[in-house]
Design a protein around this nucleic acid. Structure first.
Lengths: 144, 144
DNA sequence: GTTGACCTTTACGTAAACGTAAGGTAGCAT
DNA sequence: ATGCTACCTTACGTTTACGTAAAGGTCAAC
């Protein structure tokens, strides 16, 4: 059924592939974000496909300003015990909240993007002599 | 021309309105992100409409994981000397890069959102007895 | 058998973004 | 003139997310 999915990677392979240091990977493990196999005699970490998927999620989340604690919570959602239907419902709730947060971030980013575009237009019009210097200030504060 | 725009706010007014502590506002000033009027005898800070606009930009940027240093750079874009056309061109360049970054973030957020939705669907199908527990793992690692 | 590459743990150091007193001033109310 | 409130500066403390040695184990290669 699941064949060939047992491939593993060493810490240096993972670290160079994902552009993070080994220290970072060990730190994430310390926080419970990753759990590479440690059952080898020599104590080496071996990362599975699952670890890679989790790491990807963490690195992406980090770029959005989520804390590692936030991301730990998120990863725990995926660790829901499938036999506990009540827990699954809880997971669904939290996931829904998460999606709302993401939607809000997307909206805010679009606002921010638009402001930058507007400012760019003002600069261009100024260069063309079609606008005065006074129009080159920050987007005005509209709350109130 | 610009009338009634000279209204000012105290530090506690600003801090409670924007949900940050006075310490944060003083810290931002120390970093050059804000520059409230300090010309009063008693040394009090008085925040203008311009300071509010800059603060808003900072607080929003912070939610996207931008560092205060990043945001300082961004704010400096708006402080371009309008008489230096060469500097304006430079500003336009940096602004364009910024917009690309934002577009990339939006794309990534949408991917992230979609993954959460997919996972939600799997959970729901499981609750309905239409999926097995094995399907409830993380979205599979597809790089390779 | 020793060199070198790669791994390990332990532990102290650090930059960013504030938090948190401590101690003093300005202005108004009683 | 005394208290209260809001402001100020200075300065040390704290959390997060790692960086950076230091000291040592393992294993293939020469």
């Amino acid at each position: 059924m699941t064949e060939g999915d047992d491939r593993t990677w060493t810490i240096s392979e993972i670290s160079s592939e994902f552009g993070v240091t080994p220290r970072t990977l060990r730190y994430y493990e310390e926080l419970g974000l990753l759990s590479p196999d440690r059952s080898r005699d020599n104590g080496q970490r071996l990362y599975s496909r699952r670890d890679r998927a989790r790491l990807k999620l963490v690195l992406r989340g980090r770029r959005f300003g989520f804390s590692l604690k936030d991301l730990k919570e998120l990863l725990d959602l995926y660790d829901t015990d499938p036999t506990r239907k009540e827990q699954i419902r809880r997971t669904l709730e939290i996931g829904a909240k998460r999606i709302e947060e993401i939607d809000e971030m997307i909206r805010e980013l679009q606002v921010h993007r638009q402001e930058l575009l507007d400012y760019r237009d003002r600069l261009v019009r100024f260069l063309e002599g079609k606008a005065t210097a006074e129009e080159l200030d920050l987007p005005l504060d509209d709350t109130e």
